[in-house]
């Protein structure tokens, strides 16, 4: 310690200044990330007159009128409900399909494992409209167009690869000797999966489900191509306020806030899972 204090003043400053800058820069970036959210929330709480004031008002009487008006806005209400349904079906489907596939890829002899791996990367990587345009006509013929199930099914092209990468890295953390012990005890692969692997990776299942939820909830391109009215999701509900820009900021910002609130709650509650999922996804992908 004495040695440190004996260092010349300039050296000590040279060590402290970068740290001070790190705090300042981080603070600035936090502000940069949060301010637009705050500002849009503030706008949503303004009356129509306050919202269009020039210069913009920093102090105002908050009103819930814009949010209450949304409640009576039938289209938006239904798109929110549709998103809940589609997200639920989509996530359930992705887990039901990805869990056995990930287990087989990690712990069973699967011929052509590499081909499946490349296929997953391609499905995840290629642009949405490459898949959506041909599906538009198929869905028209088969009656899947503008249905919750049809949309949730199409979302698998993106969430399945991600789910399989995530789940297989969670499964890989389990000691393979546990499989062998269970097989000697007389368990089938299906029993090993349901009685040991799934219970052992519940946090990983949660992280996967959360990331899929966020992606499906926020998706626009596939929804715009494959729905028209009955199954329109909340992103399309928000889009319908696009034309309001210069007229009614209150309705548009309130709709935006409502659309993002479920995901923001996730971010607060499940931050660790989301970070783990994103990180693993990046390392795998």
């Amino acid at each position: 310690m004495n040695f440190v204090f004996a260092l010349p003043r300039a050296v000590r400053l040279g060590r402290r200044l970068p740290l001070a800058w790190a705090y300042v820069f981080t603070g600035a970036m936090v502000l940069f990330s949060l301010f637009p959210v705050y500002w849009v929330l503030a706008t949503a709480l303004k009356t129509k007159r306050d919202g269009l004031a020039n210069p913009p008002l920093w102090l105002f009487d908050p009103t819930a009128a814009n949010f209450l008006k949304l409640w009576t806005h039938d289209t938006f209400k239904y798109t929110f409900l549709n998103s809940v349904i589609v997200t639920f079906i989509g996530v359930a489907l992705s887990l039901a399909i990805a869990i056995p596939a990930a287990y087989a890829i990690v712990r069973m002899k699967v011929r052509g494992r590499n081909i499946v791996g490349i296929w997953l990367i391609l499905a995840y990587m290629l642009p949405e409209f490459l898949f959506v345009l041909p599906m538009f006509s198929l869905y028209q013929w088969t009656g899947l167009y503008d249905t919750h199930v049809g949309l949730a099914l199409m979302y698998q092209v993106h969430v399945l690869p991600l789910s399989i990468w995530l789940l297989s890295s969670f499964f890989r953390e389990i000691n393979p000797a546990i499989d062998e012990a269970a097989r000697i005890e007389g368990a089938t692969h299906f029993q090993i999966l349901t009685r040991i692997y799934i219970p052992c990776t519940m946090p990983g299942m949660g992280a996967t489900a959360i990331l899929n939820t966020i992606w499906i909830w926020n998706e626009l391109a596939i929804a715009i191509g494959l729905t028209f009215s009955r199954a329109q999701t909340v992103t399309l509900g928000v889009t319908s306020f696009r034309g309001y820009t210069a007229l009614d900021w209150g309705a548009m910002t309130a709709a935006s806030i409502i659309a993002i609130i479920p995901m923001l709650l996730f971010a607060v509650v499940a931050q660790k899972h989301i970070v783990k999922g994103l990180t693993l996804g990046a390392v795998k992908g």
Partner: peptide, 12 residues
């Protein structure tokens, strides 16, 4: 029946 080096007890 088999006893493993890592014991391989079922963690859950």
């Amino acid at each position: 029946s088999m006893v493993f080096q890592s014991y391989a007890l079922f963690p859950n």
